[in-house]
Design a protein around this nucleic acid. Sequence first.
DNA 1: AATCGAGTAACTGCTCTGGTTACGGGAGCG
DNA 2: CGCTCCCGTAACCAGAGCAGTTACTCGATT
Lengths: 136, 136
Amino acid sequence: MKRNSRLSLALHSLSHMAREPERLRKSADIAEHAGTNPVVVRRVLGNLRQAGLLVSEAGHSGGWRLARPPHEITLADVYLALDERLAAPQSEEHAHDCSVEHVLFDRVSKVMAEVEQTLIQKLSETTILEIRESAD
Amino acid sequence: MKRNSRLSLALHSLSHMAREPERLRKSADIAEHAGTNPVVVRRVLGNLRQAGLLVSEAGHSGGWRLARPPHEITLADVYLALDERLAAPQSEEHAHDCSVEHVLFDRVSKVMAEVEQTLIQKLSETTILEIRESAD
DNA sequence: AATCGAGTAACTGCTCTGGTTACGGGAGCG
DNA sequence: CGCTCCCGTAACCAGAGCAGTTACTCGATT
């Protein structure tokens, strides 16, 4: 299973911003550090802004800043902000005319939902401040 | 996150075969029931054969059959046979010149590995025979 | 020998993703 | 006011993954 790079980019960016929470960062600078493109950064960080994790300021000397102190932002917050469920219950487009398929769907969906909760639980145990501090 | 349909196809096929384990099934029949293509079925079931869950016989009146009794095949066996780890540790292609990235990678990898184990554990609690029996 | 089914390669079309360019709008500065 | 800088987005492109399809070979049964 392949995971896209958005979560990595988001976590990486926020962890860096945890060092100096007050400082405004330009998407171009973040992109350069992460080895990607300013537009990509704005796309990903835009999701975090919608989730209330980041604030962006337009105009001259604008940029991005944490919306909350870094010890109040967990990895789970970032994961949830991106809205990419690892254990997404596959939408059942076609009605399960087959009873085996139906039972299977229910069982697997239940397992995946539980696993998803486990993941969120584990991610919520670490804040981006802790990541930042562990990196010193 | 999107999951491909191979696991669903594999589980569906095996659960049906759990009803009459001795009976040989043609890939064309399985494909028709699953609403897909014989080649696709053979591709997926080929993985299950390599993992020792299925046996295939070539030639006239050949087909597919369970390699073990259905109460000895769990959903985890099927998941593992497909070798598509949900929590695949993303290969770190570029060296983490950044310490934050390194710490982040370690932490996230650890969480993902634990979640993967949780998933396997939960899937191993159900056999394809139980699925088959629940569908009656 | 003829037939049927697995095994497999090759090609296609679709989708997702990331990278890129381009442009509009808002905020500060001279 | 006009210029510049930066975010916000739309649009487009290329690459990867995936499922579907066709076509062929090989092997076993009849």
